[in-house]
Design a protein around this nucleic acid. Structure first.
Lengths: 195, 195
DNA sequence: CTTATAACATACTAATTAGTATGTTTATGC
DNA sequence: GCATAAACATACTAATTAGTATGTTATAAG
């Protein structure tokens, strides 16, 4: 990776971390410059506006991160219902970067920016749909092996599961990670309904 | 209500509407003044800071609104599982003020402000807990009448249901109200698990 | 080595922000 | 009706915002 590409990547990564904790609009360019030690000239050389940077952050940081932690685990060949539960448990309780207080970076972005910026919205829809499709496909495969009941509407179930995740991330911001555990217990009951 | 009290109430109401659509931090005091026709002197006579107004808005507008639309319906004497479903259906699809694009005012506030302001966080916890308790109590009553299975952990179920609501409100911001209907279908399946 | 461009650096601007200082008006108890 | 405080109005400030104008330095091809 060229030095310039490294600079660009570093801006995106540090911006991601700041935005995760502070929100997109509350994170100023000056704030990003201060923590990256990059100058304003360099920033606007790599990105033509703050929103241009934000969009790049979604596509180049958020999306790959989501894919690695939420989609990849579902590609394993185990019992689908169990894989979904473990994926949820891991992402809620085992990823040190993600703190209950700050929620989920993707959910945060949807909440703050989807109504305000249609480019952001579309990029975030792509991200969400990718996960939802992976869950639905995982359940669909389970139907073939008989591990998921045939009358389960996998699309609806995937929507319901993704909604639950977004909601418990929101709740965790107010109540802390204890509610994650409560949620996971009841998720287990719901998932049993599918098999 | 005295004229002064009316002014105060009007500021809170219009601020609530602006904040619902734009977010708390993105809604400037000048913006509120422009839409209320109130002057800066009047604003700072009634509230000692923007955050003071925000907290009053949570307690005096958000909280009563939440209580009326989410708690009151659960006090009816019908089948608890059905009451919960109808409450959810009504608040998602039948309240004209709430638009999918802008989500839920309370969920929005939690998402944006819970990590940033502990007074806000506590006020919002009170609001959330009130609803969650009402759902749990509703289910608990159902146990007595035999309409809810005895082995249901009503606390866990209430947490799961509230999380689902918050999440589908988030998802609706990106995908529109279609996903509300998908969610409601699967919620029905989940709720059947409880009876 | 030269030269051109990529990659960065510095200093500025105009708009917006929450909040204050200092007024004037309006209502209300006596 | 009058005094007095409540209720509001206007003009300001200092800080912060995204973005620009105009530089300088590093890099890599010829």
């Amino acid at each position: 990776m060229s030095k310039a590409a490294e600079t660009r990547q570093m801006i995106l990564q540090r911006s991601f971390e700041l935005i995760y904790r502070q929100g997109y609009q509350a994170t100023s360019i000056d704030n990003i410059l201060a923590t990256t030690q990059v100058t304003k000239g360099a920033f606007f050389y790599h990105f033509k506006s703050k929103d241009d940077m934000g969009l790049a952050m979604i596509n180049e940081i958020l999306y790959p991160g989501m894919y690695a932690s939420l989609v990849t685990p579902l590609l394993k060949a185990g019992n689908p219902v169990n894989e979904i539960y473990q994926m949820m448990r891991t992402v809620l309780l085992k990823v040190p970067f993600l703190q209950a207080k700050y929620g989920c970076p993707a959910i945060n972005m949807i909440d703050e920016m989807a109504p305000l910026n249609d480019d952001f919205r579309k990029a975030l829809v792509r991200l969400t749909q990718q996960w939802q499709n992976a869950i639905a496909q995982c359940l669909e495969q389970g139907k073939e092996t008989g591990e998921v009941r045939g009358n389960v509407n996998t699309e609806n179930a995937a929507c319901f599961i993704v909604a639950g995740y977004g909601g418990i991330r929101n709740m965790g911001k107010a109540l802390g990670s204890d509610c994650y555990r409560t949620y996971l217990k009841e998720l287990e009951n719901y998932l049993m309904l599918l098999e």
